[in-house]
């Protein structure tokens, strides 16, 4: 029978979270990469929610995932608008040159 349990999903989402966090911490390229790493972190959060919802038999986890998805979409829209505004002002979105 199936051997994949809740722990497998938790470890997977932990790995994704750490990868996203490392990308956030050591990224020195541009702001768009920072936004992408934020997406990774939110995705790991979503996987956690859905796995919990499926294994504990409670649909509310999936509803919270829905809310997280829409918040992430709003956040990306605002972030990209900020990037565009910054680029208009400084012609540059490198993190090193901005400071």
């Amino acid at each position: 029978m199936l051997q994949v349990g809740l722990n497998h999903f938790l470890v997977l989402s932990l790995v994704l979270f750490v990868v996203g966090l490392v990308g956030l911490a050591f990224n020195r390229k541009n702001i768009i990469s920072v936004l992408m790493c934020l997406e990774l972190v939110l995705l790991s959060c979503n996987i956690n929610f859905v796995a919990g919802s499926a294994f504990f038999g409670n649909i509310e986890g999936q509803i919270y995932t829905f809310f997280t998805l829409s918040i992430a979409a709003a956040e990306v829209a605002i972030g990209l608008a900020l990037v565009v505004a910054l680029f208009k002002k400084t012609q540059n979105i490198d993190l090193d040159k901005i400071k």
């Binding site: 999903f9 997977l12 979503n46 996987i47 859905v50 796995a51 919802s53 499926a54 999936q62 995932t65 829905f66 998805l69």
Partner: peptide, 10 residues
Amino acid sequence: LFILLGAEFL
């Protein structure tokens, strides 16, 4: 993975 977990909508 979501489909594997039975969350097709998401």
